[in-house]
Design a protein around this nucleic acid. Structure first.
Lengths: 189, 189
DNA sequence: TGCACTGCGAGTCAAACTGTCTCATAAGAT
DNA sequence: ATCTTATGAGACAGTTTGACTCGCAGTGCA
Protein backbone atom coordinates (compact mmCIF):
# COMPACT_ATOMS: atom_id res chain seq x y z
CA UNK A 1 0.00 0.00 0.00
CA UNK A 2 0.93 3.61 0.28
CA UNK A 3 4.25 4.18 1.98
CA UNK A 4 4.19 7.58 3.68
CA UNK A 5 7.97 7.82 3.74
CA UNK A 6 8.53 7.22 0.03
CA UNK A 7 10.22 10.37 -1.33
CA UNK A 8 8.10 10.13 -4.48
CA UNK A 9 5.01 10.18 -2.32
CA UNK A 10 6.24 13.17 -0.34
CA UNK A 11 7.22 15.03 -3.50
CA UNK A 12 3.78 14.59 -5.05
CA UNK A 13 2.11 15.53 -1.82
CA UNK A 14 4.08 18.75 -1.50
CA UNK A 15 3.54 19.69 -5.13
CA UNK A 16 -0.20 19.11 -4.74
CA UNK A 17 -0.43 21.13 -1.52
CA UNK A 18 1.54 24.00 -3.06
CA UNK A 19 -0.63 24.07 -6.14
CA UNK A 20 -3.78 23.95 -4.01
CA UNK A 21 -2.58 26.85 -1.89
CA UNK A 22 -1.71 28.89 -4.95
CA UNK A 23 -5.08 28.21 -6.52
CA UNK A 24 -6.88 29.17 -3.33
CA UNK A 25 -4.94 32.41 -3.15
CA UNK A 26 -5.37 33.30 -6.81
CA UNK A 27 -8.90 32.16 -7.57
CA UNK A 28 -10.62 31.14 -4.38
CA UNK A 29 -11.70 27.84 -2.83
CA UNK A 30 -13.82 26.81 -5.82
CA UNK A 31 -10.67 26.68 -7.96
CA UNK A 32 -9.23 23.87 -5.86
CA UNK A 33 -10.40 20.96 -8.05
CA UNK A 34 -8.55 17.74 -8.82
CA UNK A 35 -8.04 18.75 -12.45
CA UNK A 36 -6.72 22.25 -11.78
CA UNK A 37 -4.47 21.09 -8.96
CA UNK A 38 -3.07 18.38 -11.25
CA UNK A 39 -2.41 20.88 -14.04
CA UNK A 40 -0.79 23.42 -11.75
CA UNK A 41 1.36 20.94 -9.86
CA UNK A 42 2.47 18.95 -12.91
CA UNK A 43 1.19 15.84 -11.15
CA UNK A 44 -1.15 13.39 -12.85
CA UNK A 45 -4.85 13.75 -12.17
CA UNK A 46 -5.07 10.20 -10.85
CA UNK A 47 -2.30 10.98 -8.37
CA UNK A 48 -4.28 13.85 -6.89
CA UNK A 49 -7.19 11.44 -6.42
CA UNK A 50 -4.88 8.92 -4.79
CA UNK A 51 -3.67 11.47 -2.24
CA UNK A 52 -6.98 13.24 -1.65
CA UNK A 53 -10.11 11.51 -2.98
CA UNK A 54 -12.11 14.57 -1.78
CA UNK A 55 -11.15 18.17 -2.41
CA UNK A 56 -12.43 19.30 0.99
CA UNK A 57 -9.61 17.79 3.08
CA UNK A 58 -7.11 18.93 0.46
CA UNK A 59 -8.32 22.50 0.79
CA UNK A 60 -8.15 22.17 4.55
CA UNK A 61 -4.55 20.94 4.51
CA UNK A 62 -3.54 23.51 1.93
CA UNK A 63 -4.90 26.24 4.18
CA UNK A 64 -2.93 24.86 7.08
CA UNK A 65 0.29 25.51 5.15
CA UNK A 66 -0.34 29.24 5.35
CA UNK A 67 1.19 30.58 8.57
CA UNK A 68 -1.63 32.18 10.55
CA UNK A 69 -1.05 34.84 13.18
CA UNK A 70 -1.11 33.63 16.77
CA UNK A 71 -0.32 35.21 20.08
CA UNK A 72 3.22 34.25 20.88
CA UNK A 73 4.38 33.45 24.38
CA UNK A 74 3.73 36.55 26.46
CA UNK A 75 6.59 38.61 27.81
CA UNK A 76 6.59 41.44 30.31
CA UNK A 77 5.50 44.14 30.21
CA UNK A 78 2.23 42.71 28.94
CA UNK A 79 1.09 45.95 27.37
CA UNK A 80 4.16 46.17 25.13
CA UNK A 81 3.89 42.49 24.27
CA UNK A 82 0.25 42.95 23.35
CA UNK A 83 1.01 45.97 21.23
CA UNK A 84 3.71 44.05 19.39
CA UNK A 85 1.49 41.02 18.83
CA UNK A 86 -1.50 43.01 17.62
CA UNK A 87 0.71 45.01 15.27
CA UNK A 88 2.07 41.76 13.89
CA UNK A 89 -1.45 40.39 13.41
CA UNK A 90 -2.51 43.60 11.67
CA UNK A 91 0.44 43.27 9.31
CA UNK A 92 -0.40 39.61 8.66
CA UNK A 93 -3.98 40.51 7.84
CA UNK A 94 -2.73 42.73 5.05
CA UNK A 95 -1.29 39.69 3.30
CA UNK A 96 -3.54 38.28 0.59
CA UNK A 97 -3.10 34.68 1.58
CA UNK A 98 -3.84 35.25 5.24
CA UNK A 99 -7.02 37.11 4.36
CA UNK A 100 -7.94 34.39 1.89
CA UNK A 101 -7.51 31.69 4.51
CA UNK A 102 -9.31 33.59 7.24
CA UNK A 103 -12.38 34.47 5.19
CA UNK A 104 -12.51 31.06 3.53
CA UNK A 105 -12.43 29.48 6.96
CA UNK A 106 -15.22 31.69 8.28
CA UNK A 107 -17.38 31.13 5.22
CA UNK A 108 -16.82 27.44 4.53
CA UNK A 109 -17.18 26.56 8.20
CA UNK A 110 -20.87 27.43 7.96
CA UNK A 111 -21.55 24.30 5.86
CA UNK A 112 -18.55 22.00 6.28
CA UNK A 113 -18.09 20.49 9.71
CA UNK A 114 -14.41 19.70 9.20
CA UNK A 115 -13.80 23.30 8.29
CA UNK A 116 -15.86 24.31 11.30
CA UNK A 117 -13.70 22.22 13.58
CA UNK A 118 -10.65 23.93 12.14
CA UNK A 119 -12.22 27.33 12.74
CA UNK A 120 -13.07 26.45 16.33
CA UNK A 121 -9.55 25.21 17.00
CA UNK A 122 -8.05 28.39 15.58
CA UNK A 123 -10.40 30.65 17.50
CA UNK A 124 -9.85 28.95 20.80
CA UNK A 125 -6.07 28.99 20.52
CA UNK A 126 -6.18 32.75 20.07
CA UNK A 127 -8.74 33.30 22.80
CA UNK A 128 -7.00 30.98 25.27
CA UNK A 129 -3.54 32.42 24.88
CA UNK A 130 -4.73 35.99 25.21
CA UNK A 131 -6.97 35.20 28.17
CA UNK A 132 -4.13 33.50 30.03
CA UNK A 133 -1.74 36.34 29.33
CA UNK A 134 -4.22 38.93 30.52
CA UNK A 135 -5.21 37.04 33.64
CA UNK A 136 -1.54 36.74 34.51
CA UNK A 137 -1.02 40.42 33.87
CA UNK A 138 -3.91 41.23 36.15
CA UNK A 139 -2.51 38.94 38.84
CA UNK A 140 0.75 40.87 38.58
CA UNK A 141 -1.08 44.17 38.88
CA UNK A 142 -0.29 45.34 35.38
CA UNK A 143 -3.92 45.86 34.49
CA UNK A 144 -7.37 45.90 36.02
CA UNK A 145 -9.59 44.23 33.44
CA UNK A 146 -12.94 45.85 32.70
CA UNK A 147 -13.74 42.99 30.35
CA UNK A 148 -13.91 39.25 30.88
CA UNK A 149 -10.65 37.88 29.59
CA UNK A 150 -12.72 35.65 27.26
CA UNK A 151 -13.88 38.80 25.52
CA UNK A 152 -10.38 40.11 24.96
CA UNK A 153 -9.70 38.33 21.68
CA UNK A 154 -12.88 39.63 20.08
CA UNK A 155 -12.20 43.13 21.41
CA UNK A 156 -8.66 43.30 20.06
CA UNK A 157 -8.61 41.15 16.91
CA UNK A 158 -12.18 41.95 15.92
CA UNK A 159 -11.59 45.54 14.81
CA UNK A 160 -8.54 44.58 12.76
CA UNK A 161 -10.32 41.61 11.23
CA UNK A 162 -13.28 43.77 10.26
CA UNK A 163 -11.02 46.48 8.95
CA UNK A 164 -9.08 44.13 6.70
CA UNK A 165 -11.86 41.82 5.48
CA UNK A 166 -14.92 44.08 5.31
CA UNK A 167 -13.48 47.57 4.98
CA UNK A 168 -10.45 46.23 3.15
CA UNK A 169 -8.06 48.85 4.47
CA UNK A 170 -4.93 48.71 6.62
CA UNK A 171 -5.21 48.97 10.39
CA UNK A 172 -3.67 52.11 11.85
CA UNK A 173 -1.99 52.17 15.22
CA UNK A 174 -4.74 54.31 16.74
CA UNK A 175 -7.16 51.43 16.34
CA UNK A 176 -4.73 49.06 18.04
CA UNK A 177 -4.15 51.48 20.92
CA UNK A 178 -7.86 51.96 21.42
CA UNK A 179 -8.41 48.21 21.52
CA UNK A 180 -5.63 47.78 24.10
CA UNK A 181 -7.04 50.58 26.22
CA UNK A 182 -10.53 49.07 26.03
CA UNK A 183 -9.39 45.94 27.85
CA UNK A 184 -9.11 47.66 31.19
CA UNK A 185 -7.15 50.16 33.23
CA UNK A 186 -3.41 49.70 32.72
CA UNK A 187 -1.17 50.67 35.57
CA UNK A 188 1.10 53.52 34.45
CA UNK A 189 4.57 52.93 35.75
CA UNK B 1 -37.91 40.77 -26.15
CA UNK B 2 -38.13 40.43 -22.41
CA UNK B 3 -40.79 42.59 -20.84
CA UNK B 4 -39.81 43.46 -17.30
CA UNK B 5 -43.41 44.11 -16.28
CA UNK B 6 -44.81 40.78 -17.46
CA UNK B 7 -46.22 39.05 -14.35
CA UNK B 8 -44.89 35.73 -15.63
CA UNK B 9 -41.43 37.24 -15.78
CA UNK B 10 -41.71 38.67 -12.26
CA UNK B 11 -43.02 35.37 -10.92
CA UNK B 12 -40.11 33.41 -12.33
CA UNK B 13 -37.64 36.00 -11.16
CA UNK B 14 -38.94 35.90 -7.61
CA UNK B 15 -39.00 32.12 -7.51
CA UNK B 16 -35.43 31.99 -8.78
CA UNK B 17 -34.16 34.55 -6.27
CA UNK B 18 -35.87 32.76 -3.40
CA UNK B 19 -34.41 29.42 -4.39
CA UNK B 20 -30.95 30.95 -4.78
CA UNK B 21 -31.15 32.53 -1.33
CA UNK B 22 -32.28 29.25 0.23
CA UNK B 23 -29.47 27.35 -1.47
CA UNK B 24 -26.90 29.86 -0.31
CA UNK B 25 -28.16 29.60 3.23
CA UNK B 26 -28.35 25.81 3.26
CA UNK B 27 -25.33 24.77 1.27
CA UNK B 28 -23.19 27.79 0.53
CA UNK B 29 -22.40 29.85 -2.56
CA UNK B 30 -21.18 26.86 -4.59
CA UNK B 31 -24.67 25.38 -4.44
CA UNK B 32 -26.10 28.28 -6.40
CA UNK B 33 -25.96 26.64 -9.85
CA UNK B 34 -28.48 26.97 -12.69
CA UNK B 35 -29.55 23.35 -12.32
CA UNK B 36 -30.07 23.41 -8.55
CA UNK B 37 -31.84 26.75 -8.63
CA UNK B 38 -34.15 25.43 -11.37
CA UNK B 39 -34.95 22.29 -9.37
CA UNK B 40 -35.56 24.16 -6.15
CA UNK B 41 -37.66 26.92 -7.69
CA UNK B 42 -39.74 24.67 -9.95
CA UNK B 43 -38.71 26.87 -12.86
CA UNK B 44 -37.27 25.42 -16.08
CA UNK B 45 -33.51 25.31 -16.38
CA UNK B 46 -33.62 27.37 -19.58
CA UNK B 47 -35.60 30.05 -17.76
CA UNK B 48 -32.90 30.44 -15.15
CA UNK B 49 -30.38 30.93 -17.95
CA UNK B 50 -32.69 33.49 -19.58
CA UNK B 51 -32.89 35.54 -16.41
CA UNK B 52 -29.26 35.16 -15.27
CA UNK B 53 -26.83 33.77 -17.86
CA UNK B 54 -24.13 33.90 -15.16
CA UNK B 55 -24.55 32.62 -11.62
CA UNK B 56 -22.40 35.41 -10.17
CA UNK B 57 -24.96 38.22 -10.58
CA UNK B 58 -27.70 35.85 -9.44
CA UNK B 59 -25.84 35.14 -6.22
CA UNK B 60 -25.26 38.85 -5.77
CA UNK B 61 -28.94 39.69 -6.16
CA UNK B 62 -30.00 36.78 -3.98
CA UNK B 63 -27.72 38.06 -1.24
CA UNK B 64 -29.25 41.51 -1.57
CA UNK B 65 -32.64 40.04 -0.61
CA UNK B 66 -31.33 39.26 2.86
CA UNK B 67 -31.88 42.28 5.11
CA UNK B 68 -28.48 43.33 6.42
CA UNK B 69 -27.98 45.34 9.60
CA UNK B 70 -27.38 49.05 9.13
CA UNK B 71 -27.18 52.00 11.44
CA UNK B 72 -30.59 53.63 11.50
CA UNK B 73 -31.07 57.36 11.65
CA UNK B 74 -29.44 58.55 14.88
CA UNK B 75 -31.55 59.87 17.72
CA UNK B 76 -30.51 61.62 20.93
CA UNK B 77 -28.98 60.70 23.23
CA UNK B 78 -26.38 59.23 20.90
CA UNK B 79 -25.05 56.78 23.45
CA UNK B 80 -28.44 55.13 23.91
CA UNK B 81 -29.03 55.10 20.16
CA UNK B 82 -25.65 53.48 19.62
CA UNK B 83 -26.30 50.86 22.28
CA UNK B 84 -29.63 50.02 20.68
CA UNK B 85 -28.16 49.81 17.19
CA UNK B 86 -25.20 47.67 18.21
CA UNK B 87 -27.47 45.36 20.14
CA UNK B 88 -29.65 45.03 17.06
CA UNK B 89 -26.62 44.27 14.88
CA UNK B 90 -25.42 41.68 17.39
CA UNK B 91 -28.81 40.01 17.25
CA UNK B 92 -28.79 40.09 13.44
CA UNK B 93 -25.35 38.48 13.37
CA UNK B 94 -26.79 35.51 15.22
CA UNK B 95 -29.06 34.77 12.27
CA UNK B 96 -27.73 32.12 9.92
CA UNK B 97 -28.57 33.97 6.75
CA UNK B 98 -26.97 37.21 7.84
CA UNK B 99 -23.77 35.39 8.77
CA UNK B 100 -23.88 33.49 5.48
CA UNK B 101 -24.21 36.69 3.49
CA UNK B 102 -21.57 38.56 5.45
CA UNK B 103 -18.90 35.87 5.24
CA UNK B 104 -19.71 35.04 1.62
CA UNK B 105 -19.35 38.72 0.79
CA UNK B 106 -15.99 38.98 2.56
CA UNK B 107 -14.67 35.82 0.98
CA UNK B 108 -16.00 36.09 -2.57
CA UNK B 109 -15.01 39.76 -2.79
CA UNK B 110 -11.37 38.70 -2.79
CA UNK B 111 -11.70 37.30 -6.33
CA UNK B 112 -14.89 38.74 -7.82
CA UNK B 113 -14.86 42.45 -8.49
CA UNK B 114 -18.63 42.79 -8.56
CA UNK B 115 -18.79 41.19 -5.15
CA UNK B 116 -16.01 43.47 -4.03
CA UNK B 117 -17.96 46.52 -5.14
CA UNK B 118 -20.90 45.26 -3.12
CA UNK B 119 -18.68 44.76 -0.09
CA UNK B 120 -17.24 48.26 -0.42
CA UNK B 121 -20.70 49.80 -0.71
CA UNK B 122 -21.89 47.94 2.38
CA UNK B 123 -18.82 48.86 4.41
CA UNK B 124 -18.94 52.52 3.54
CA UNK B 125 -22.62 52.88 4.34
CA UNK B 126 -21.96 51.55 7.84
CA UNK B 127 -18.81 53.61 8.34
CA UNK B 128 -20.36 56.80 6.96
CA UNK B 129 -23.52 56.69 9.03
CA UNK B 130 -21.68 55.98 12.25
CA UNK B 131 -19.02 58.61 11.55
CA UNK B 132 -21.65 61.28 10.90
CA UNK B 133 -23.60 60.36 14.01
CA UNK B 134 -20.50 60.48 16.19
CA UNK B 135 -19.20 63.75 14.73
CA UNK B 136 -22.60 65.29 15.42
CA UNK B 137 -22.58 63.91 18.94
CA UNK B 138 -19.16 65.40 19.53
CA UNK B 139 -20.32 68.76 18.14
CA UNK B 140 -23.17 68.66 20.66
CA UNK B 141 -20.76 67.85 23.46
CA UNK B 142 -22.10 64.35 24.11
CA UNK B 143 -18.70 62.76 23.63
CA UNK B 144 -15.05 63.60 23.20
CA UNK B 145 -13.76 61.11 20.64
CA UNK B 146 -10.43 59.46 21.31
CA UNK B 147 -10.67 57.73 17.95
CA UNK B 148 -11.06 59.06 14.43
CA UNK B 149 -14.72 58.71 13.59
CA UNK B 150 -13.62 56.64 10.55
CA UNK B 151 -12.32 54.05 12.99
CA UNK B 152 -15.57 53.82 14.90
CA UNK B 153 -17.25 51.21 12.72
CA UNK B 154 -14.32 48.81 12.96
CA UNK B 155 -14.07 49.41 16.70
CA UNK B 156 -17.73 48.69 17.39
CA UNK B 157 -18.84 46.19 14.73
CA UNK B 158 -15.49 44.43 14.52
CA UNK B 159 -15.67 42.63 17.88
CA UNK B 160 -19.21 41.43 17.23
CA UNK B 161 -18.35 40.34 13.71
CA UNK B 162 -15.33 38.41 14.95
CA UNK B 163 -17.32 36.92 17.78
CA UNK B 164 -20.07 35.64 15.51
CA UNK B 165 -18.07 34.53 12.47
CA UNK B 166 -14.78 33.32 13.94
CA UNK B 167 -15.63 32.43 17.53
CA UNK B 168 -19.18 31.50 16.56
CA UNK B 169 -20.72 32.60 19.83
CA UNK B 170 -23.29 35.23 20.77
CA UNK B 171 -22.17 38.71 21.69
CA UNK B 172 -22.77 39.67 25.31
CA UNK B 173 -23.65 43.17 26.39
CA UNK B 174 -20.30 43.66 28.13
CA UNK B 175 -18.56 43.52 24.77
CA UNK B 176 -20.94 46.12 23.36
CA UNK B 177 -20.45 48.40 26.35
CA UNK B 178 -16.68 48.12 26.11
CA UNK B 179 -16.79 49.00 22.42
CA UNK B 180 -18.97 52.03 23.10
CA UNK B 181 -16.66 53.17 25.89
CA UNK B 182 -13.62 52.73 23.64
CA UNK B 183 -14.85 55.40 21.24
CA UNK B 184 -14.09 58.25 23.60
CA UNK B 185 -15.13 59.97 26.80
CA UNK B 186 -18.89 60.23 27.08
CA UNK B 187 -20.27 63.14 29.06
CA UNK B 188 -22.17 61.77 32.04
CA UNK B 189 -25.39 63.70 32.52
C1' DT C 1 25.09 -3.58 -9.59
C1' DG C 2 20.80 -6.00 -10.07
C1' DC C 3 16.19 -7.08 -8.35
C1' DA C 4 11.61 -6.50 -6.36
C1' DC C 5 8.48 -3.05 -4.96
C1' DT C 6 5.36 0.63 -5.52
C1' DG C 7 4.07 5.38 -6.59
C1' DC C 8 3.40 7.65 -10.79
C1' DG C 9 1.68 9.58 -15.60
C1' DA C 10 -1.11 8.73 -19.27
C1' DG C 11 -4.95 7.08 -20.98
C1' DT C 12 -9.79 5.05 -21.17
C1' DC C 13 -14.53 5.11 -19.98
C1' DA C 14 -19.23 5.94 -18.26
C1' DA C 15 -21.92 9.15 -15.82
C1' DA C 16 -23.10 13.65 -14.70
C1' DC C 17 -23.12 18.35 -15.67
C1' DT C 18 -23.07 22.79 -18.65
C1' DG C 19 -24.51 25.88 -21.85
C1' DT C 20 -27.30 26.50 -26.06
C1' DC C 21 -31.00 25.77 -28.98
C1' DT C 22 -35.75 24.47 -30.73
C1' DC C 23 -40.59 24.10 -30.32
C1' DA C 24 -45.25 23.64 -28.67
C1' DT C 25 -47.94 25.73 -25.01
C1' DA C 26 -50.40 28.85 -22.33
C1' DA C 27 -50.54 33.10 -19.75
C1' DG C 28 -51.26 37.91 -20.59
C1' DA C 29 -52.00 42.18 -23.35
C1' DT C 30 -54.88 44.63 -26.67
C1' DA D 1 -60.86 36.77 -30.13
C1' DT D 2 -56.19 37.37 -31.52
C1' DC D 3 -51.51 38.44 -31.16
C1' DT D 4 -47.45 38.52 -28.24
C1' DT D 5 -44.06 36.38 -25.54
C1' DA D 6 -42.31 34.01 -21.34
C1' DT D 7 -42.17 29.42 -20.26
C1' DG D 8 -41.21 24.09 -19.72
C1' DA D 9 -39.63 20.18 -21.85
C1' DG D 10 -36.38 18.18 -24.21
C1' DA D 11 -32.48 17.49 -27.59
C1' DC D 12 -27.78 18.23 -28.24
C1' DA D 13 -22.57 18.69 -28.15
C1' DG D 14 -18.87 19.70 -25.24
C1' DT D 15 -16.86 19.45 -20.85
C1' DT D 16 -16.01 17.72 -16.23
C1' DT D 17 -15.99 14.14 -12.77
C1' DG D 18 -14.69 10.01 -10.56
C1' DA D 19 -13.05 5.30 -11.13
C1' DC D 20 -10.48 2.20 -13.41
C1' DT D 21 -6.34 0.35 -16.12
C1' DC D 22 -1.38 -0.42 -17.52
C1' DG D 23 3.44 0.29 -18.59
C1' DC D 24 7.13 2.93 -16.63
C1' DA D 25 10.55 4.58 -13.58
C1' DG D 26 12.23 6.10 -9.03
C1' DT D 27 13.50 3.79 -4.69
C1' DG D 28 15.16 0.55 -1.10
C1' DC D 29 17.57 -3.54 -0.33
C1' DA D 30 20.70 -7.34 -1.06
Amino acid sequence: MTNETDPRFARSRDAILNAARELLLESGPTAVTHAQVADRSGVGRATVYRHWPQTGPLLLEAMATVPMPFFDKPTAPTREWLRRELTAIARQLELDDVRAVATTLANTALWDENMDASRARFASILADRLAIALDDAQARGEITLTLTSRNAAAMTIGPMYYRSTIERAPTDSALIEAAIAALGAWSTD
